[in-house]
Amino acid sequence: MRKYETFFILDPDLSDEANAAVDEKLKTVVSSNGGTLLSYASWGKKKLAYPVKKRIRGHYVLMEYAGGPKLVAELERNMRLDERLLKFITVKLEERFDPEKEEARRGAAQAAAETEEVTPEKESFPVVEQEEEQLSAMDEDVDASEEEDES
């Protein structure tokens, strides 16, 4: 078992149901090919650095999972066939996946998040603003979706 992450861009104009359908489909691909899904997180809608399939914005999603190389091949095949997905990238995070280590890492991350919760807003909001400046003029509803993700 290896640990992978797949970062992909969904069509930003999809309805919530369509998004859920894609989520469901990818999750079943992972589980039916002997993989374990570790996390599945939406990164919100962002402006793309260049147009992809004639779209200038995209809905980023990050998925972490453990599995074999066959799972990655199958997942990428599905992603290529699916027109709702604009682009994806799969990166191998660890050669040997150790569930116990993952548990420990997750526990540590949670503890860190809890201690940081005292001052999360002051730290996280300027970061978003900076990024917007650099990405040059994002739409208002993009801001809204990003804020939702952070809360």
Binding site: L48, A49, Y50, P51, V52, G58, K87, I89, V91
Partner: peptide, 16 residues
């Protein structure tokens, strides 16, 4: 280079 693949960074600004 990975960020460029996933459209977080531009390959170039000229054509976009």
């Amino acid at each position: 280079k990975r960020a460029r693949q996933i459209a977080l960074l531009p390959f170039t600004t000229v054509h976009t």
